[in-house]
Design a protein around this nucleic acid. Sequence first.
DNA 1: TATTAACACGAAAACGGTTTCGTGGTTTAA
DNA 2: TTAAACCACGAAACCGTTTTCGTGTTAATA
Lengths: 339, 339
Amino acid sequence: MKRKITLKHIARELEVSISTVSKALKNSEEISRDTKEKIQAFAKLYNYKPNNIAISLKNKRTKNIGVIIPDIVHYFFTTVIRGIEKYSNAKGYNVIVCVSDESFDKEVINMELLANGSIDGFIMALSAETQLKNDYNHLKEVTEQGIPLVLFDRVTDEVQCDKVIINDREGAYFAVNKLAKNGRKHIALITTENYFSVSRARAAGYRQALRDNGLEVNENLVLELPNMNVDEEAVNDFLDGQKIDAVLCVNEIFAVHSMKLAKRKGFKIPEDISFIGFTDGILSKYASPSLTAVAQHGQKMGEIAAQMLIEKVEADTDEENFRTEILEATLMERESTIN
Amino acid sequence: MKRKITLKHIARELEVSISTVSKALKNSEEISRDTKEKIQAFAKLYNYKPNNIAISLKNKRTKNIGVIIPDIVHYFFTTVIRGIEKYSNAKGYNVIVCVSDESFDKEVINMELLANGSIDGFIMALSAETQLKNDYNHLKEVTEQGIPLVLFDRVTDEVQCDKVIINDREGAYFAVNKLAKNGRKHIALITTENYFSVSRARAAGYRQALRDNGLEVNENLVLELPNMNVDEEAVNDFLDGQKIDAVLCVNEIFAVHSMKLAKRKGFKIPEDISFIGFTDGILSKYASPSLTAVAQHGQKMGEIAAQMLIEKVEADTDEENFRTEILEATLMERESTIN
DNA sequence: TATTAACACGAAAACGGTTTCGTGGTTTAA
DNA sequence: TTAAACCACGAAACCGTTTTCGTGTTAATA
């Protein structure tokens, strides 16, 4: 087993000082050509690579970015991570991923752990429980320590920091608008409980579009599904309970799942009933019929988040100018709506 | 902005030495009750937390695990990460995720970067290109340096290390066996190019099951789709080219996609043609008809990989006893086959 | 009373780098 | 010939911990 070689080893072997080795490897002008060549050759031969930890300690910079997301088995979040990875790696940063599992406590623990020197900054989406509790002290503490933070998708006004979101309101608005233009009169919304910032925004867009198209806002046409999973009975009752000829869902699982239930009831899609989901992901693409969806541009979002973060990390100023980047939601039309 | 406090700050403030502070915070017997209480109270008040980087440098242990996967936007890999995260966090480890993007070079770069002190061990699945090139020197270098390595799913015999895989051969065998027992005579296989270890194993299981059921192995019934994406024309031609009444696919995208093409051609599923995929993921569950699939137990795999790795990381011995854990593949039956 | 043990703490080295400053020896200019 | 300038390198501090090994003071023992 060949252990990793250090400056000290090289110095001892070549009978020079550690400082000389360090400078030689950085091609410092201070060191003579002969000595540099000798040292560089030796280092190359023994495949010397500086120890990241030591450099981090010295520089007080780790070149690591901490990412905390509610769930990793979720298409949208993985596309965001891909974007973060892509941009960060190009800038020489590594990504430490932590999963809060929608739990407030895990979010806090993970943040505190990483905040003690492991990372240069955070990118995160709030857990469900955090949004429900509306407690953001862990975020505030981190920003007060001067650690840059970028929030994406699931954000809050309570914390002053950079943010990246899509225009959820507008996305929902476009979707409902399209359904209305197709002549749909009974447009339903299947959503989560309303403590999610994104769900509230989407519901607002939904209502606005109805009004702007002269359709009445009927609260019976809104179904709230608790804790992110589809209660089949509730959806069945919902579909039976009234005339519905179009459904907007706040995520693709809700959409694909309820579309399937509708099919099972004998509805023809899109003729009898149209469906639109959020998160233009893999499910939307491969569903049958394939699902029209509001694209959330996760990868783009990740890239922008990473860019904003690294900018702050590498800035020498401490001025507090925070911005919120709003990406345009776009509609990806497929078979589940009439085009 | 309140900067993070260090031992030195506490020491200066309380007019004791750094060593005393360090010991007091560890509740050392060496320090008097009075002094300890004073120091601990002060530390608590100012929310002192030791700097991870400094501890890592001292201990030569980072409590970080490096995970390198080919792609993060892929259900199976995310479930593995979830498993790794779960086990690792419980043991106090963080997970650094790097994506090789199926590229040999990126895999090498990521490994080298992390190997310089950033992590205590690696968990990885080989990139497509690495398997194609059959070049594993970067892995060997890492293990020679004494850094523990666990390979999962996409493994190789060329490297001596711990491994976790599922019984791909048997999974395919079970699947084809079931199709044969259902009376299918013309069972096709849609697979990737054969440099993937998993694809080879699955193809072997497929052939064995055919033979054991008295069916002839017909190479015309095997379709190789290059570079992981579905060429619709190729699949259409394949389905038209001969009588096929069942298809085994080596992943769920192939399965769901070709099932959709078959449906479009007017095939009734599962009556006219049955489908079975690998990777019992979200697509399989929500497809219509829902897809019978060979479950790969990604989360379990991740947990085991993490367990094996941490065991090696925390072992003080350097003895080289490597094992390969083989998980049983199980068949998840759904609507795309007759049960 | 002299010796020893126990106690409570500090100095310093170590982890592996970077960087500032100092210095001995040579070269150049006066 | 002497002073100044320059070259090439080393010593040491520093980043924030942990840990070993003293050491001065007090208490217990002979």
